[in-house]
């Protein structure tokens, strides 16, 4: 039996605190999202910011460049009922907060300015947790089974020389969709 130890250092223990902080920052509107259409609109609004952050974390000239399919993967997996609704809100509001810190111009910053902006954001507990969450979601996209549409031709598995086990999934838990 593998020990299933809970690691409290991930920050997830305090995720409700982040939401409370988000509310204090005036970002609580995301808590009111009820319908999938609401999430679609909200995600679309923050998508450029999240993609800009991911592009900075996973630059195109690196060994693990950001896939353009990552946003779709995030949208699909975050829309599914199995996705933690608190984290869904956190992802949305963290992006809004980042934009707010830069007068809604984060995406147009130069690479060096983005580095400074993200390191400054990381100085806050809230920003640090959000950046960590974005990195984790991006890694999920890149290293999931190719059936999820990002790790095409096992590109990312090839890069690290590690492959998913058999049998591979024949269907996605998030349902079918044209990819």
């Amino acid at each position: 039996m593998l020990r299933k130890d809970f690691i409290k250092k991930t920050g997830i223990m305090k995720r409700r605190n982040f939401l409370i902080l988000g509310s204090a920052l005036g970002l609580f509107s995301y808590l009111k999202l009820k319908k999938s259409d609401d999430f679609e609109v909200a995600f679309k609004n923050v998508k450029p910011t999240i993609e800009a952050v991911q592009g900075h974390m996973f630059p195109q000239n690196s060994k693990l460049p950001l896939s353009l399919q990552t946003s779709l993967f995030m949208y699909e997996t975050m829309s599914h009922p199995s996705f933690d609704k608190d984290i869904r809100v956190f992802v949305l509001e963290g992006a809004s907060e980042l934009e707010k810190r830069h007068d809604n111009h984060f995406t147009s910053l130069a690479a060096q300015e983005k580095e400074i902006a993200l390191r400054a954001y990381e100085e806050t507990n809230y920003g640090s947790a959000w950046l960590s969450q974005i990195m984790t979601l991006t890694l999920e996209a890149h290293f999931s089974d190719p059936i999820y549409g990002v790790n095409k031709n096992e590109k990312y598995w090839d890069e690290v020389g590690a492959y998913g086990g058999l049998p591979r999934p024949k269907q996605r838990y998030i349902g079918t969709i044209d990819v």
């Binding site: 974390m57 996973f58 000239n61 390191r119 990381e122 960590s132 990195m135």
Partner: peptide, 24 residues
């Protein structure tokens, strides 16, 4: 041997996230 969890493990140095080319 989970791939995602291994990739996501310990991507910090001196309390800061590693990103950019260094992360890959």
């Amino acid at each position: 041997q989970n791939i995602i969890s291994r990739a996501a493990k310990d991507n910090q140095e001196e309390g800061k996230l590693v990103w950019g080319s260094a992360l890959g």
